[in-house]
Amino acid sequence: MPSQVEERTRKVVAEVFGLPLLAVTVQTSHETVDDWDSLNVLNVLMAIEGEFDVSISPEEAAEFVSVERILAVLQGKGVS
């Protein structure tokens, strides 16, 4: 059973990259999405900050290469 955080994160990633929600899984990453470039990493970062009302550090942003890693960062910040 996927958590609410996972659902919301997949939704954010879907909105940033313009993908159908069902096409975004935990495995979705910069290797599966062409547009996952440095500009869009910033868009993901801003979107995640806005969605969960958290502040992401540059070091954490460097981890934003897949939904799985984003979830790990959020978990590390106590978002659950």
Partner: peptide
């Protein structure tokens, strides 16, 4: 809208 993700979706 108030959130960046909403803007991205609407803009698209």
């Amino acid at each position: 809208p108030t959130k960046p993700a909403e803007y991205l979706r609407l803009a698209r």
